[in-house]
Write a protein that binds this DNA or RNA. Structure first.
Lengths: 358, 358
DNA sequence: TTGTAAGCGTTATCAC
DNA sequence: GTGATAACGCTTACAA
């Protein structure tokens, strides 16, 4: 049926040539095959409602017949939109981020958007570089973790009109769209439980707080609880380290070598806590009889570790999902989505108990 | 110094307008500012060696001054290269893939390439869709997991001239570039250990084998070892399920409810094994005294679970790294990299022991 | 409803 | 070494 149109060629084609050249078919090829203009083909693909049933049909047949698939670079260049959304996370080595990202990606995929990934290794300058890189690559929007970054970078993003969503934190005072929970409050609630259990000498293993607002807020949360319980916040014994089981292990040993050692160690995340757990076992300390240990995140590790870990549940899937939905909503130009606070519930399990009576 | 050139405008600019419009600066803007042609600016950016020291300097100053950053869509359209590499993995929910992907991405990032991610949820049709999607998006090359897929899709990729690397498997007989290990052989070696320990009745918990060659090969590996030990391979009790702790738990219960239950359960991965471990504990079965359990992957979960898991180490980081290097080497047009076989060593830990004497 | 044609911002092939 | 200028494949006013 389209055979009589198949031999139509546009003037811009250099030479008459076989229909089946090795280069992928273009819009023009489809247009020629269907006997319509490229504009019409484009409409069929992007706004089918603007086109007659009959032409639509014919064009779609041609598309199908030629195995046409649009060139996204060209589309992006012309429409100034890539349908790619970037995510810059500290690392996929931690399940909490990997799984959050998985949820984010699933949601994007459902809506025909593609995920562009970069990682910052918890380094501020690296993150900045990645933000520049992904926006240069044409990311329509960005998912970022936490608030802390140079104001200049926010200005840059704003000037470029790149929508940004901050995940893993929630602070209505901040002017950015976000989905997450109050890190400080969550940790404070957990610390309250620790104090209620009777602990008076606390230790803390945390990631570097300099460029990591989540880590900082969590430590502050512990101090808040201490202050509220009339305990001097500066008696909190803190070890800053990197996020890994091994680091948690070593940090724990460091905390426990002092005289007047803490009776409860609160860790910035589950990975550190599992490391602490391992060190404790290795040192012959029973948990929670000899020392209490808490985590943060509630990853699988936490529930299958030798002693089920007392921790805080971080709603990673819901954050990832909502982040994707919100960002795509912003891009669609509809009403601006609201920031969303999610609960971060305590998981009271086996590693927290009252301290031994001295 | 470039001020006298700053007022030069190209004819194609519609109207005289402020230098500082809201749109990001383009090559033409830089060219105008530096008093050279766009071609020269392009050269400065891509082939600096073709340009005078002096002009290079002037152009770079203009770039810097205007805060220019190239438009990748346009670049991609003109150069037919996106510098984006796609990866389609089953899921980031499993740490083994998340961490492999992290290594892959780090390596890409080092070389200025960006990672495009999609996930298949272990579904063949979904994977096919994602392959089409990422190539349509302009991925220069693709990382795929395992060999099993429709021949048509390989043909498609070849026709499109998209380099592909298969990871997580190694089979020199296959005509594709790959990095990985021999799943069948690795599991066979582990099964040999199980048989050497004296087990005669084996069970197996695996992912669906229909569209998952790694899973299938691992099961075959067990059968190989059984056959070599004069045990009828069809006595292997198999439960197919999805990959999750909960599934492993349930599959274990299912295997242990029969009469003549297996004395050793070999699991397709660590997640399933940890589920089995949990079920065993819940059923009051001691591991390895009452039943032996093995895993595959050697993720962190395996070493911190209540009983350190006997498993097979999967070299995820090295696979991810090599995959990135190999793919970028192919793209650079240099000599074609070779496929690489990596060792998958056994991790003999606590969950395998001889069966109780009947 | 459909066609025409002007971009979109680069790269790349030529001349000079 | 540098500059015109034609692609690259698509979207989108504007016309018809």
């Amino acid at each position: 049926m389209d055979s009589h149109a198949a031999h139509i060629h546009y003037g811009h084609m250099h030479e008459p040539q076989d229909i089946n050249t090795d280069a992928p078919p273009t819009l023009a090829d489809v247009a020629a095959a269907a006997g319509v203009s490229t504009a019409t083909v484009s409409r069929c693909l992007n706004n089918p409602e603007l086109v007659t049933e009959k032409t639509l049909e014919r064009v779609l047949a041609a598309v199908d017949h030629l195995g046409y698939s649009p060139n996204f670079s060209a589309r992006a260049l012309a429409s100034r939109r890539t349908n790619m959304i970037g995510a810059i996370i500290p690392t996929m080595d931690n399940a909490i981020f990997a799984r959050g990202l998985q949820a984010f990606q699933e949601e994007l995929q459902k809506n025909g958007c593609t995920l562009l990934v970069a990682s910052s290794s918890y380094k501020q300058d690296l993150e900045e570089e990645q933000i520049k890189a992904l926006t240069a690559r044409g990311a329509d929007a960005l998912l970022l973790i936490g608030y802390h970054r140079d104001p200049g970078i926010y200005a840059f993003l704003e000037k470029r009109r790149i929508p940004v969503l901050v995940a893993w934190a929630y602070d209505p005072a901040k002017p950015y769209l976000c989905v997450g929970f109050r890190n400080r409050d969550a940790m404070k609630r957990l610390a309250e439980k620790v104090l209620e259990a009777g602990h008076r000498k606390l230790g803390c293993i945390t990631a570097e707080t300099a460029a990591n607002d989540r880590a900082r807020e969590r430590v502050d949360g512990i101090r808040d609880a201490m202050a509220a319980a009339d305990l001097a916040p500066d008696t909190l014994e803190i070890v800053e380290t990197t996020y890994s089981i091994e680091s948690g292990d070593q940090a724990f040993r460091q905390l426990m070598q002092d005289t007047d050692t803490p009776t409860a160690i609160m860790c910035g995340n589950d990975v550190l806590a599992v490391g602490a757990l391992r060190a404790a076992a290795d040192m012959g300390l029973r948990v929670p009889e000899d020392v209490s240990i808490t985590g943060f995140d509630n990853i699988e590790l936490a529930s299958v570790s030798p002693q089920p870990l007392t921790t805080v549940h971080v709603p990673h899937r819901r954050m990832g999902q909502y982040a994707a939905q919100a960002l795509m909503k912003v891009l669609s130009g509809g009403d601006v989505p609201a920031s969303l606070e999610l609960p971060a519930d305590l998981c009271m399990r086996a590693t927290l108990a009252p301290p031994r009576k001295p």
